[in-house]
């Protein structure tokens, strides 16, 4: 939502300007290629780690609110990982936890005014998806050896169907990181473009005088509703990303 400031003063709405990367910390940031995107990654990671640290500091048998929240987030992802991946779920639990909270914190941080949504960058989401993809392939080799390749020809398929089925399975396998990354990226971009567009409407209507001031309430109301929707989408997309990661890992560790 940083783009509110960059809404063109005239008649157009620059809905995509909010996704532009700018170096932070002046020349040092420019030299290190350090934009506001990694800055917000750091902030998100710090928030999650501080939340866990401060929450678990009492280490009480009867938890307070913050500790209960930290424990619930732990249990939630732990149950997700173990119930989906199976008995090896505990091995991948920190990875799934990191994925879920990296995305969730990014999505929610981006909803704050003047913040940057790093999950709205296809490069970031594709990087995460490729990481999941590579780790699931490594886990396949680790747990099943080269034998995991037989998944590309489902058991009991007639051999003459192989030339047809193997490419289909291969394409569906290779398209996983693409669909995984585009789903998150597109959801975030769409939500933030909508927020920007309606915010732009408000500014444009405000320029029409008293009548416009009254009308401008409508896009604000829509933006409030959209913010609520984005709160849902933010957690939902993080959950979808995490559970798909778990499903891919289950396939990797299943014998």
């Amino acid at each position: 939502m940083t783009g509110e400031a960059s809404v063109a003063a005239g008649s157009t709405i620059d809905a995509l300007g909010q996704f532009e990367l700018h170096p932070v910390l002046g020349h040092l940031g420019e030299a290190l290629r350090f934009s506001q995107s990694p800055l917000f990654m750091l902030i998100a990671v710090a928030i999650v780690l501080v939340f866990l640290y401060v929450g678990m500091r009492p280490a009480a048998v009867v938890p307070g609110r913050l500790q209960a929240a930290a424990e619930i987030s732990y249990d939630f992802v732990h149950d997700l990982a173990v119930s989906t991946i199976g008995e090896n779920g505990a091995t991948f639990f920190p990875f799934v936890f990191a994925i879920f909270f990296f995305i969730l914190a990014g999505n929610y941080l981006g909803l704050l005014p003047f913040a940057f949504t790093y999950t709205s960058h296809i490069a970031v989401t594709f990087g995460l998806a490729i990481m999941v993809f590579v780790i699931s392939i490594l886990a396949s080799i680790r747990f099943q050896g080269v034998g995991f390749l037989k998944h590309f020809l489902p058991a009991g398929t007639p051999v003459w169907l192989a030339p047809l089925l193997v490419p289909i399975e291969l394409i569906s396998f290779l398209s996983r990181p693409v669909s995984l990354s585009i789903r998150l990226f597109a959801n975030m971009v769409a939500g933030h473009v909508l927020l920007e567009v309606f915010a732009g409407f408000t500014i444009m209507l405000a320029g029409l005088g008293a009548f416009g001031h009254v009308l401008a309430i409508a896009p604000i109301a829509i933006n409030i509703a959209l913010t609520a929707l984005e709160l849902l989408v933010g957690v939902l997309q993080a959950y979808v990303f995490a559970i798909l990661t778990c499903i891919y890992l289950r396939e990797a560790v299943a014998h």
């Binding site: 990367l21 700018h22 170096p23 290190l32 290629r33 350090f34 934009s35 995107s37 990694p38 990654m41 750091l42 990671v45 999650v48 780690l49 866990l52 920190p94 990875f95 936890f97 990191a98 990296f102 790093y118 960058h121 490069a123 970031v124 990087g127 995460l128 990481m131």
Partner: peptide, 21 residues
């Protein structure tokens, strides 16, 4: 900066993963 954020993201995520695990 676009590629930079991916590299930074990898570093930050790696650190995040290590701190968590």
């Amino acid at each position: 900066l676009l590629i930079g954020q991916v590299v930074w993201g990898a570093v930050i995520f790696g650190g995040f993963y290590l701190a968590l695990s």
